[in-house]
């Protein structure tokens, strides 16, 4: 638990991240994501509860925890006056790497992050994308077991964001656990194995990324393309299993409780109405849809549903 005056920023937040997975920690602005990272990284004290990172207690063994984690903050925070190489070397010194090991690791990181040619350029002279890449490289100097990414692709152009996502995958493939907070839900869906959604400092759902959609929506999506326009009132009256319906580019998306039963009802109704079904398939709600559904559930009266 963490309070700021009367405001409870984190309320009985309880979760476990398994070694080697990419864990997406999601929530709207002000949900408590950065506060959580700051507590896990030993930058902020909690008011109650226990925090263990890599098996070490953050209060009693803070230095041991910091030796095993890397943090990529939302804003790149390296030393503007120092070159790329010197920034990495300095952090290597702080993390206790010996001279030859440091040199080898710095060269390796500059190459991995495609910054070898910029090794002698000062950090302040880099483009935003390069600054971001060097910030990620800096968090990996000491080969941490866990890396915390706070909005890693925020403010980046599409190619830079894509490159960074690929780097996050590479880091994870090498066995590093990734703790990710992002507002980009497609990114979270693309990268993560597990998702936790936090709203107003409380955990509202947690699970495997592909299960969250179904859990959150409480329904599945049936996608149908008809041969002609559909009178939706008649369709809804004939198909009681349909919970909600919407259309995009001639494709109807029905939120349904039971796919089989609804399919039967829709097929029967289409035959009776003289309509042909050109395409029918099931869809899992996207993480974004699930997230919106959860947000709506947590803010009263925001949707009219059947």
């Amino acid at each position: 638990m963490r309070r700021y005056g009367d405001l409870v920023a984190l309320d009985r937040v309880d979760f476990t991240v398994r070694r080697g997975e990419i864990f997406a920690y999601l929530g709207p602005n002000g949900a408590g994501k950065t506060t959580t990272i700051n507590i896990l990284a030993g930058l902020l004290h909690r008011d109650a509860g226990q925090v263990s990172v890599c098996g070490f207690d953050i209060d009693r063994e803070g230095v041991a925890v910091k030796q095993r984690i890397g943090v990529v903050p939302e804003e790149s925070n390296l030393y503007p006056e120092l070159t790329c190489r010197r920034n990495l070397e300095y952090l290597g010194q702080l993390y206790g790497l010996g001279r030859s090991e440091r040199r080898r690791r710095v060269d390796e990181l500059l190459e991995t992050f495609d910054l070898t040619e910029k090794a002698s350029v000062r950090f302040r002279a880099l483009s935003r994308g390069m600054k971001r890449r060097l910030t990620v490289a800096a968090s990996l100097v000491h080969s941490p077991e866990v890396v915390f990414f706070d909005e890693p692709t925020s403010g980046l152009d599409v190619p830079s964001a894509r490159t960074l996502r690929e780097l996050i995958r590479t880091i994870n493939r090498h066995g590093t656990t990734v703790f990710l907070t992002t507002h980009n839900l497609a990114e979270a869906e693309d990268l993560s194995d597990q998702v936790l959604i936090l709203i107003k400092g409380k955990v509202v759902t947690e699970g495997a990324t592909d299960e969250i959609g179904r859990q959150a929506a409480g329904a599945e999506i049936l996608s149908v393309v008809f041969s002609a326009n559909v009178p939706v009132d008649t369709l809804l009256a004939a198909c009681p299993a349909v919970m909600s319906a919407n259309i995009t580019d001639e494709k109807w998306r029905f939120e349904v409780a039971d796919v089989h039963q609804t399919t039967m009802q829709i097929v029967a109704w289409a035959e009776k109405s003289g309509l042909k079904i050109l395409k029918i398939s099931t869809e899992t709600p996207s993480l974004e849809e699930a997230f919106m559904a959860i947000l709506e559930k947590n803010s009263a009266g925001s949707e009219v549903r059947r």
Partner: peptide, 14 residues
């Protein structure tokens, strides 16, 4: 202001 002090606080130093 630049966040580099936070970078230092994240390092394994007291």
């Amino acid at each position: 202001r630049s966040g580099t002090l936070q970078r230092l606080l994240l390092a394994p130093v007291s």
